[in-house]
Design a protein around this nucleic acid. Structure first.
Length: 329
RNA sequence: GCCGAGGUAGCCAAGGUGGUUACGGCACGGGUCUGAAAAACCUGGGAUGUCAGUUCGACUCUGACCCUCGGCA
């Protein structure tokens, strides 16, 4: 039997989580957010859990890394909604789209009533379309060695050991050191060319929020200001005090990385702030590229509409879509 | 008003004894993506202050004008 998995995707600042929480369509909301997975990074990543309570669960066996996970749930609600996959790892730990997909697949398997909400397009893409080379973990030693090489040299190495892959890469990827290094990493590992599906017998039904871009820009700016006011700089200072470094995976996050130069007194707070806002806007643009032509997603234009009618639209899209999907199944 | 410095894209900016298509960076537009993805990349368009002069040819040299900055009054 086919199951339907509702997904709400949209750029930063589009209000995804708000809609998901207030819609009460699902009791298990799974956050697809590659930054809110980090502990101690709350203000900058917009972890808006307010007065929710956190409940810890056991570390599941499906992941060999040490990941503590649980969910937040809302107070003051007759039907408390659980918000999953926040605060999974420390800022120094690496975490991948596959890790996230494994956890998500586990949850979907365990709970009938789930919904995905988030703006990390690559995470959602990995989950719903699967991935290749799943058996091959990252080889950080190799990466470090390869990172020192020039682009041409990397292409040469890949061309020697896996010419087909190099030939198949498009111009953008062929000039991207990270992608080349990953390809070399895979090529050096035999039997790694297996693919993995995370979802079985699950039909994805997505809503893709499309805000007015000019409005989104002003919203991003005011939200950033607000986060400064809430004590973002103290949060960063605290992370540094805890011993986290600027090159830790978690610290490569907008709202944090831009203030590196402020903490080293190379730039003013305002300069860093402007850089941050600019990064957020560019990011929002990149976010809009995922799923824009994906038939599984329906666009919801939010400009000129109030929250209530948007909520209604999303809810009816899911209801109609879900019943249609089910009847077809 | 006088003296000095200078005007190259939205911003910062290189250049040359006059000679294909004027270096870059930021910003902006359009994209890529199969274990880092809020990452890392690819790609596109746009400029010589104005008017004359010299010259086969001026962004480059000459003059006038306009504007900016600094100093003196």
């Amino acid at each position: 039997m086919n199951r339907v998995l509702p997904v709400i995707y949209g750029p930063t600042s589009s209000g995804k989580t708000d809609y998901a929480l207030s819609l009460s369509l699902s009791t298990n909301i799974i956050s697809a957010d590659s930054r809110q997975i980090y502990r101690y990074m709350d203000i900058g990543t917009g972890k808006d859990v307010g007065n929710a309570a956190f409940k810890n669960l056991n570390t599941p066996k499906i992941i060999n890394k040490k990941i503590h996970w649980g969910y937040y749930y809302q107070f003051n609600s007759e039907n408390p909604v659980k918000l999953w996959l926040l605060d999974l790892v420390n800022p120094s730990q690496s975490f991948s789209s596959v890790d996230w997909s494994l956890l998500t697949a586990y949850l979907i398997n365990k709970y009938e009533d789930c919904m995905i909400v988030g703006g990390s397009g690559y995470y959602i893409k990995t989950l719903i379309d699967g991935i290749q080379n799943y058996n091959l973990n990252n080889n950080f030693a190799l990466r470090k060695k390869l990172e020192k090489l020039e682009l041409g040299k990397l292409q040469e190495i890949l061309g020697d050991i896996w010419p087909d892959r190099l030939a198949k890469m498009n111009n953008s990827d062929r000039k991207n050191p990270r992608r080349l290094i990953r390809a070399i990493e895979i090529a050096q590992n035999k039997n790694s060319d297996k693919s993995m599906k995370f979802l079985n017998s699950v039909k994805v039904r997505g809503v893709y929020l499309v805000p007015d871009f000019e409005y989104l820009k002003t919203k991003i700016r005011s939200r950033a200001k607000d986060r400064l006011k809430k004590g973002l700089l103290d949060e960063i200072a605290n992370l540094l005090k805890k011993g986290y470094k600027w090159d830790d995976p978690g610290m490569n996050t907008m709202g944090y990385k831009e203030f590196n130069h402020y903490f080293s007194s190379e730039k003013s707070k305002d300069e860093c702030f402007e850089e941050w806002v600019s990064d957020e806007i560019k990011y929002a643009k990149r976010q809009m590229l995922w799923f824009r032509d994906d038939k599984r997603f329906t666009k919801v234009f939010t400009a000129q509409k109030n929250k209530k009618s948007i909520k209604k639209e999303i809810a009816s899209l899911f209801r109609e879509g879900i019943s249609r999907d089910l009847s077809r199944a």
